[in-house]
Design a protein around this nucleic acid. Sequence first.
DNA 1: TTCCAGGCAATAC
DNA 2: GTATTGCATGGA
Length: 222
Amino acid sequence: MDIIFRVYRELYSMYGPQGWWPLLGHGGYHKEDYTLPKSQDEVFEVCLGAILTQNTSFTSVVQSLENLEALGALSVEGVKKLPVEVLKNAIKPSGYFNQKARYILAFVAFFETLTKVPTREELLRVLGIGEETADSILLYGYKQNEFVVDSYTKRIFFRLGLIEERAKYADVKHLVQQSFQCVEDTNKLWIEYQEFHALLVEHAKRYYSKRPYARGCPLVKL
DNA sequence: TTCCAGGCAATAC
DNA sequence: GTATTGCATGGA
């Protein structure tokens, strides 16, 4: 069997379903409930979180989202009503608040124009949305079959000898997606991609956060 | 105190 | 095209 798919199966057996993307209104994670996000506001919350978590831990993002919720700004209309300084102050816990405020306002303007699921290309044209953020929005907000590659993914794959150290985003993404061609139901491939990405993050937090990386990592034996 | 966190845009070569 | 730099707070 494909080595990357074996890594997925191994991680799933180790940690089980992860229940990403966390949503405030559902107590955070929601294991094995793949119906979420349901409302447009919940989709919007995923998008906000995807922007706020750039190079930032999600625990900090939760603080920002809670601040926004308290301001009634966990929606497009809510964010638009906020003075920019109030918005910046609310998202301060997530860092880079000047940039991220601009990104959020740019995204709000884009989100308002949507009449369907956005394409990846459309998302990438929005200020502040790069490849990972675009794929996070598509995978977790819109249930599209787009695997998310992050720094943890690259770090683990590199340590396991599966990619080059400076492998490009698109190359890693395609490598994973090719490895998942064995999945029968391609209509629900996004569920596997959601779990795999979340599992990689969980695993990286345990074994790949402190140097030397991979110390005690049980995947090395694969 | 230092290091790191679920990146991105602008700029420099 | 690839490499570097600024962005900023909070927790370990």
